[in-house]
C-alpha cells in the first residue's frame, strides 16, 4: 500500500481524534484527583499555619477543582 493510501485510511478511521479524546478524558480525571488531593492538603496546611491569606489560598484550591471539572466537561463534550 502506498504511503498516501495508508495516511488516508489512518485519517478515515479518525485514530488521532479518538486517541486525543481518550487521552484528554484520562488526563482530566487524573487532574481532578490531583486537585482534590491538593485541596485537602491545603486545608491541612492552613490548619498548621493560620494567617491572613488562608482564605485566598483555600479559594484558589477550590477554584482548581472547579477548573478540573470544566476540563473534564471540555474533554467529554468538546473534542
Amino acid at each position: 500500500m502506498e504511503l498516501n493510501g495508508f495516511l488516508n485510511l489512518f485519517n478515515s478511521l479518525k485514530v488521532v481524534d479518538e486517541f486525543f479524546k481518550v487521552s484528554a478524558v484520562l488526563l482530566a480525571i487524573l487532574y481532578l484527583l490531583y486537585a482534590i488531593v491538593i485541596s485537602k492538603q491545603v486545608s491541612i496546611m492552613n490548619r498548621t499555619l493560620e494567617d491572613k491569606f488562608q482564605y485566598v489560598i483555600s479559594f484558589v484550591s477550590s477554584l482548581q477543582i472547579a477548573v478540573a471539572l470544566i476540563l473534564l466537561i471540555f474533554s467529554l463534550f468538546l473534542v
Binding site: V16, D17, F20, A24, A28, Y31, Y34, V67, L71, L78
Partner: peptide, 21 residues
C-alpha cells in the same frame, strides 16, 4: 496542521491549567 480548532482549544486549556498547577 495536525489538530482541529476544538482540539487545539482543549490542548491549550490543559497546558495552561498544568502550568498554573
Amino acid at each position: 496542521s495536525f489538530l482541529s480548532v476544538s482540539q487545539i482549544f482543549v490542548f491549550n486549556s490543559f497546558m495552561f491549567v498544568f502550568i498554573f498547577s
